[in-house]
Design a protein around this nucleic acid. Structure first.
Length: 488
RNA sequence: GGUCUCAUCGUCUAAUGGUUAGGACAUUGCCCUUUCAAGGCGAAAAUACGGGUUCAAUUCCCGUUGGGACUACCA
């Protein structure tokens, strides 16, 4: 049984890099008929933030990356835990880690360390100055006997528990994405397993949990590659079977450094707020470092599941490029009907726009190919609900002049006034105006440009006939009237 | 500094010994058109460098250079 897990720390909002990791874990599990679960790694009490778990889960659900097991959301959006291997929140599993740490101590796979932060800093500094590899010098392993350690622990002295890495040999593993990776054991530090506050570090907790939650494939970011030998050592100490490791390359800023806040929005909820479609973000993020091979780029989540192949994941880090995301979002927007957009974009519409669904849907149909995301929608259709600001210069077509506009606009007005109110439609307006253009031998632009600007007030907009239909006869007439006065 | 790791157009990538090195985004030219968007047709743009191996290297090996990650009682 293939089982993967997403194990975020609730230290902030869900990051797009985190979304990609979760997505790959999800796609891999689903592609293999396996299970995807979410576990919360909240062992750092300093950094854990209020509402962090909630945000991570709601972003995941928004994106459609829904866990089968572990920490989930119910219909009301409340956090629940589902599955046979819980609890799925590390702060609720403290005794398990403690028990396993004791096992390691008893079997001499780990030892107590009483060194102060100051001393640790000092050795690190001198190691760096002497161009030596950094790491704990094993002072407490060599100078503190088991009996003394027991006594000091019993006396309540502050201490941590460290893993005793072997000094000989090397640790090898076969990464599903990178192939064989080898580390010399003597260079691997004696990692702290239990902190002085009694909480486990990531390294102990991740190994214990992945084992008991029967994770078959540990898919995670590249930043973990160098601590993998420590994890493998722990599996060996416990006598557990190793999972398969797959380390994903990082998402990058445009300067190729690890993606961070300083170069714009990186949280999933920010994209949600800005009116990006989850399908577009998911599709985009999936293609950062992986693609199924052909030339097609638009894939639904179900299609991604079908196509996904960890072996085709790239080793190189990918720059998170917003322009491409905009393109994906536009593609998805184009495929939505005005009806669907009206439903989905509710949060971005003004109350007035929401109260006139018939008109707003028509308006959306006109503008939907012009916007990148929903946050642009309301602004882009505003001129159809309220009188725009007019500019005299804009009313004059580049190949025309003031006198010509002053001559033509009244003629359009006359033509339009002849149309019956109930006959008013895009088609009828178009026929009337175009036959006038033809009759007088005018150039299209001479007439259509000022008409369009009179109706929209915009430099760029949909065509004049579409706008006229939405506006209706009275409003259209009014706007032409106002434009005329601006020209005077 | 040490360890690990990566290297195809500006960006995302395809091509696992034989291609005019393909596509997409962005840039740009033209067409369509009243404008913008969309659409259509083009252009420019890459195998980091140096050695091997081979009849043949983007592809395999080595080195160089460059980038990145890690180097915490954070994950």
């Amino acid at each position: 049984m293939i089982r993967t897990r997403f194990a975020p720390s609730p230290t902030g909002l869900l990051h797009v890099g985190g979304l990609r990791t979760a997505l790959y874990q999800y796609l891999f599990a689903k592609n293999n008929g396996g299970k995807f679960l979410v576990r919360i790694e909240d062992t750092d009490r300093e950094r854990t933030v209020e509402g962090g778990i909630q945000n991570i889960l709601s972003s995941l659900y928004w994106a459609g990356v829904i866990p089968d097991e572990g920490v989930k959301l119910n219909e009301k959006g409340e956090m629940i835990q589902v599955g046979d291997f819980g609890p799925y929140i590390q702060s609720e599993r403290l005794e398990i880690y403690q028990k396993h740490a004791e096992f390691l101590i008893e079997n001499k796979f780990a030892y107590h360390c009483f060194c102060t932060a100051d001393r640790l800093d000092q050795i690190r500094h001198s190691q760096q100055e002497n161009k030596k590899p950094t790491g704990y010098d094993r002072f407490c392993l060599t100078n503190v006997s088991d009996e003394e350690a027991q006594r000091r622990v019993a006396a309540g002295e502050k201490h941590v528990i460290r893993l005793k890495m072997p000094r000989e040999g090397e640790t090898k593993f076969k990464d599903l994405i990178r192939g064989e990776v080898v580390f010399k054991n003597e260079l691997v530090d004696d990692q702290v397993l239990i902190k002085s506050d009694g909480f486990p570090t990531y390294h102990l907790a991740v190994v214990v949990d992945d084992h008991f939650m029967q994770i078959s494939h540990v898919i995670r970011g590249e930043e973990w590659i160098s601590s993998t030998p420590k994890h493998i050592q722990l599996y060996k100490c416990f006598g557990w079977e190793l999972p398969v490791f797959a380390h994903l390359s990082l998402l990058l800023n445009s300067d190729k450094s690890k993606l961070s806040k300083r170069q714009g929005d990186v949280s999933v909820s920010e994209y949600e707020k800005n009116g990006y479609l989850p399908e577009a973000l998911v599709n985009f993020v999936a293609f950062l470092g992986w693609n199924p091979g052909g030339e097609r780029e638009i894939f639904s989540l179900e299609e991604l599941v079908k196509e996904f192949d960890l072996g085709k994941v790239n080793k190189t880090g990918a720059v998170f490029n917003l322009e491409k995301l905009d393109w994906f979002n536009k593609e998805y927007l184009k495929n939505l009907s005005a009806e669907e957009i009206f439903e989905k974009a509710g949060a971005w519409l003004t109350p007035e726009q929401k109260m006139n669904p018939e008109k707003t849907k028509k308006v959306i149909a006109l503008e939907k190919d012009r916007i990148k995301n929903f946050s642009e929608l309301s602004g882009s259709i505003k001129f159809l609900y309220e009188l725009p600001e007019y500019s005299k210069e804009l009313l004059i077509w580049k190949k025309s002049n003031l006198a010509e506009v002053q001559n033509i606009l009244p003629q359009i007005k006359t033509v339009l006034s002849k149309i019956e109110e109930k006959e008013w439609s895009k088609l009828v307006v178009e026929q009337s105006v175009m036959s006038m253009v033809k009759e007088k031998g005018y150039n299209n632009g001479m007439v259509l440009w000022p008409l369009r600007v009179a109706l929209s007030g915009q430099e760029n907009s949909p065509g004049p006939f579409e706008i006229a239909e939405v506006l209706g006869k009275t409003e259209s007439q009014l706007r032409i009237e106002i434009s005329l006065s601006k020209l005077a």
